[in-house]
Design a binder for these strands. Structure first.
Length: 604
RNA sequence: GCGCCCGUAGCUCAGCUGGAUAGAGUAUCGGUCUCCGACACCGAAGGUCACAGGUUCGAAUCCUGUCGGGCGCGCCA
């Protein structure tokens, strides 16, 4: 991905729509003048906001400063607006200033002010829309982090698409982004996977046995077991009679499936020995992790780091975190377990760090992990979690507080599940039965582009209906198709240009931008100039859906324009100007889709 | 029961740190190809912003309460 490549510092900032800054400066001068003559009190120093108007009759840009200052000035907003306008210095790009509504100051801009965006885009290329607001702050974005106990399913897919888009947006906004996957390669769930693999292996080796109720029953477990059996024969084989001797009853026999699987794991460790057990364990872990890596890579997602939970135990980081909590007096022992006084730091209740059997909990590792993140010097840490984990947020914050770290550095972004629909019917999904729609299956069905786009089209905390038929459809109903088609249309026009034996001459084209005067052209130019603002807003708010909506609107502006005006006209200067506008549009669409991990095809 | 998230057009969703007449898409109805890909464009119609109060120049947006939906409340991860 190209989005970590940063353009030159000196060339970045100016891609923002310069008129906003210009008007801000003009208003500031006017306010200063009114302070000097006593119209405004000396301490009047408002945040001057310039916003884009929704209605063209309100001009191009508007300022609400008169309404903000009306009270301190003890003047009616409209009267104050008049005085501000009277004190406003002239500017060549501003053709008209009006006062409207409750006291808005509306600015009408010259066409030249809009044309300027074309050379900006064409010169900046892939970097158009990048900014420096992030100021090279180091941000770590942790996302997906699914347990490697099975393939990624469609729930993980949304977190993947969302996390990747947020990371890429932040990079474009000038943050130094570190993408990370936290690999839960320790803990009970992984032991259950290891036991499941081992039992399937034993079945392949010829043992007749009862598979545990709580084991992983997916077909991929058979695959792992088959590899193990093929490569190692009977190396890990033990008679089922020996294994099952004196184990507690499993659920179907009226026992507790949790107790049973734990006893089975203990038996496996005992019979295999720690090294051989670890071998079986790792064969499962590595197989699934490879699958996840491959799956995400094909989904266009790359990480800077895959962080191992086990490494936290092995490096002593977990012990260190526990020791710090103990030393600071935030723990106590009860019923043989070590508890953290998280309720003292905003959590609902206290939490266990070390179980009475001596094992540390997942929470203990997670404290160590977050401590490690902050020790690595990140200015901000973002966790993307499934919304069903929201109850977990207060305890992690509590731990950071107790450790004396700043919990404000942590943002937890919760992603709701997506519900898939096909043929108007809701697809049932259940991880329990081992029958679920995997991310792989989804990608295969609708393609990576549509999946990436659909996943981030909605606000992350919004429940989402994912319409598979729509994602596959090849028409304007499908937003991804619609946007990509706008890009392809420009490419098509360029091919046509070549067929006609004409050439696009950019140097000349940029001299002819004054010929772009129609409403459609100006509105397209306005949309193009908004792009950097959209990227900045979407990045800071962690809301890629803003970019999705923008791209659809931009595509609409282009299609409308394209339908209404011929690009490849005989008049060469006009043709060049229109091609320049089209190429700028193509660039912005490609940039925007790129940030979302979606391709921009030249034809489709 | 407690906590978090959500409630905007028939449906799926936007609505920028409170700002001007609440917007798109889709569905419905009606237009547009001798012309760069109609894989497209245009128009019409469609809303008590769940409900009730409050804050102020101004509230879909902020606060409180009620109703409705989702999720979470393990010595699981």
């Amino acid at each position: 991905m190209v989005y970590n490549r940063r353009p030159n510092n000196d060339s970045r900032k100016r891609f923002e729509f310069f008129m906003k800054n210009t008007l801000q400066a003009l208003i500031a001068q006017a306010v200063e003048a009114l302070r000097a003559d006593g119209t405004l009190p000396p301490d009047a120093d408002p945040a001057i906001q310039i916003e884009r108007t929704r209605d063209p009759s309100h001009g191009d840009l508007a300022c609400n400063v008169a309404m903000l200052l009306a009270k301190p000035a003890k003047t009616k907003p409209r009267d104050l607006a008049e005085k501000i306008v009277a004190a406003l210095p002239a500017d060549a790009n501003v053709t008209r200033v009006e006062i409207a509504g409750p006291g808005f100051i509306n600015f009408f801009l010259s066409q030249d002010a809009f044309h300027a965006v074309i050379p900006q885009i064409l010169e900046a290329g892939e970097a158009y829309g990048h900014s420096t607001v992030g100021n090279d702050q180091r941000v770590q974005v942790e996302f997906v982090s699914a347990n490697p106990t099975g393939p990624l399913h469609v729930g993980h897919g949304r977190g993947a698409a969302y996390g990747a888009a947020v990371a890429d947006l932040l990079a474009a906004a000038g943050f130094a982004v570190h993408r990370e996957y936290y690999v839960n390669d320790a803990g009970r769930q992984m032991d259950i996977l290891a036991a499941s693999v081992w039992l399937r292996y034993l079945e392949l080796a010829g043992e007749e046995l009862a598979f545990p109720a709580n084991g992983y029953k997916g077909d991929y477990v058979w695959d792992i077991a088959a590899t193990l059996h093929r490569e190692h024969g009977d190396r890990f084989r033990h008679p089922w009679a020996t294994i099952s001797a004196e184990l507690p009853a499993d659920e179907p026999q009226g026992g507790d499936k949790e107790l049973y699987i734990d006893a089975l794991i203990a038996r496996a460790r005992d019979l295999l020995g720690e090294d051989e057990y670890r071998f079986v364990f790792d064969s499962g872990l590595n197989h699934i992790l490879d699958d996840i890596r491959d799956d995400l890579a094909q989904f266009g997602i790359a990480y800077e780091e895959w962080f191992s939970e086990r490494s936290l135990t092995e490096s002593g980081a977990v012990d260190k975190a526990l020791q710090r909590l103990k030393d600071s007096g935030h723990t106590y022992e009860k019923e043989g377990a070590l508890w953290f006084r998280s309720a003292d730091f905003g959590d609902e209740k206290d939490r266990v760090l070390v179980r009475d059997n001596g094992q540390t909990t997942y929470f203990a590792s997670d404290i160590a992990y977050h401590m490690d993140k902050l020790e690595r010097g990140f200015d901000r840490v973002i966790d993307v979690w499934g919304a069903d984990h929201h109850g977990y947020v207060p305890r992690v914050r509590a731990a950071l507080k107790a450790l004396g770290d700043n919990p404000e550095k942590l943002d937890v972004l919760l992603v709701q599940f997506a519900i898939l629909y096909r043929g108007g019917e809701k697809l049932q999904m259940s991880t329990r039965s081992g029958e679920f729609v995997t991310l792989r299956q989804l990608r295969k069905e609708v393609g990576s582009d549509a999946a990436r786009f659909f996943y981030v089209m909605r606000k992350c905390e919004q429940h989402m209906d994912f319409d598979l038929d729509l994602a596959k459809s090849e028409s304007k109903d499908n937003p991804i198709y619609y946007i990509q088609y706008a890009h392809a249309r420009v490419c098509s026009a360029l091919r046509k240009l070549e067929e006609k034996g004409w050439q696009y001459e950019q140097g000349k084209a940029l001299q002819q931008l004054g010929l772009l005067t129609t409403d459609h052209e100006l509105s397209l130019l306005t949309s193009l100039s908004r792009y950097p603002e959209v990227i900045e807003a979407a990045a800071l708010a962690h809301e890629p859906h803003q970019l999705c909506h923008y791209l659809r609107e931009l595509a609409n502006d282009f299609h409308t324009y394209y339908n209404e005006h011929k690009i490849l006209v005989d008049d060469a200067p006009l043709r060049n100007a229109r091609l320049a506008l089209s190429l700028a549009t193509r660039q912005v669409i490609a940039n925007g889709l790129g940030l979302l991990g979606v391709s921009a095809p030249e034809s489709m």
